[in-house]
Amino acid sequence: MTAGLVGCSPGSDSGLSARPAVHHGHCFNGHDLDIAGRTMSYDHSVYVPTSSCNLCQALGLPRSTWFEIDLRFVHETPPTDAELVLIARPPTARAGVGQVDLQLRSQRIGGLDLWLCGIDRRGVIGPVGVDASYRRRGFGTVLVAAALARGAGYRWSTTAISESASARAFCAAQYWPDGVHLSRPHYCSHMKFANGDEV
């Protein structure tokens, strides 16, 4: 574990990064972890598991260590002291817009809007927002992965995506399911009704 991760505070430029807690074949810098070597540990400042690329650490590269974020929401996991967690904010109406937030020590550092319909098995992901000091460190990817995990096998789409280079780069780096419609939200009739639209 790198010293920069210990005792980090929200909003600080601590260099912390995050990934969904699933098997990764490569590190942030593109190294095959079977070849580069991987060390797993635990960060006691936020009570979250970490992984490190041994080669990145030997080369002194950035993002060599990252937090492994459980994609289950905090209320879906056994009681824990974790201070870097996903929080669900359910919709007020079935198939309406809810939110997925990522919180560090009870402070929101990122989030997105999410529409889900279990009847039509459809999901729509809204804009992904991450605080400036935490961008390009994997937190947005954790949010997208958490949203997609809510509807395995669903048909997915997103709301309009900015044409900026940074927004396009973020979208291009995600692991979207087959058939996703980017920038073309496909709201089902239940979502439209919940949104107050004409059906």
Rank of each mutant, 00 (worst) to 15 (best):
R122W: 05
G138I: 02
A172H: 11
H44D: 12
S45I: 01
R155W: 05
G138E: 06
G140I: 00
R121Y: 07
S106R: 14
T65P: 08
S45D: 04
L16C: 13
F73G: 03
H44V: 01
V48R: 13
D32Y: 02
F28G: 03
M1C: 07
Y47R: 08
G138C: 04
D120W: 10
A160G: 05
L55I: 00
C171G: 03
E163V: 00
D178Y: 11
V142Y: 13
R155N: 06
G60H: 05
A95S: 15
G30F: 03
D197F: 11
I161P: 12
G4C: 08
F67T: 01
E68R: 12
H75Y: 04
L116A: 02
S45N: 03
Q103R: 14
R121D: 02
S157F: 10
T92K: 15
H44S: 08
L102E: 06
G123P: 11
P78L: 13
A58T: 03
C117G: 04
A149P: 04
P127H: 10
G7K: 13
R135S: 02
W66Q: 09
N54M: 08
L102Q: 09
E68N: 13
V48T: 10
G111T: 00
H75R: 10
A194F: 06
F139W: 10
L112F: 05
R122N: 14
E83G: 10
V48Y: 07
G153S: 05
V142L: 11
H26T: 01
V74W: 12
L33P: 03
H181G: 02
C8D: 05
P90V: 03
G126A: 03
L148H: 13
G98R: 12
A82Q: 08
T80S: 15
A167N: 05
N54F: 01
G7S: 08
A146G: 06
G111L: 01
V124I: 04
V22E: 14
L104Y: 07
L59V: 01
P127I: 00
V85E: 06
L59S: 03
R121Q: 15
R94D: 12
L71R: 11
E83K: 14
H75S: 04
R19K: 14
S162W: 09
I109G: 12
T65E: 15
S41R: 10
P127A: 05
C117Y: 04
R122M: 12
Y47K: 07
G11I: 00
C56R: 10
F28T: 01
L148M: 14
P49K: 09
G111Q: 07
D43M: 05
E163T: 00
G118I: 02
A132Q: 10
D113A: 04
A165P: 00
R63W: 01
F28E: 06
F193P: 01
H31F: 02
L61C: 02
G98N: 11
G140Q: 08
G196N: 11
D197G: 01
C53D: 07
L55K: 14
P91I: 00
R155E: 11
A36S: 12
H186P: 01
G140N: 08
A152K: 11
W115F: 10
V97N: 13
V85T: 06
G15Q: 09
P49M: 06
G111F: 04
Q107V: 00
Q103T: 00
Q99L: 09
L116G: 05
E198L: 13
F28P: 02
L16E: 12
P20L: 08
Q57W: 08
T2G: 10
F28D: 05
A18P: 01
S157E: 09
D32A: 01
T141P: 01
Q107R: 13
G123D: 03
R121V: 02
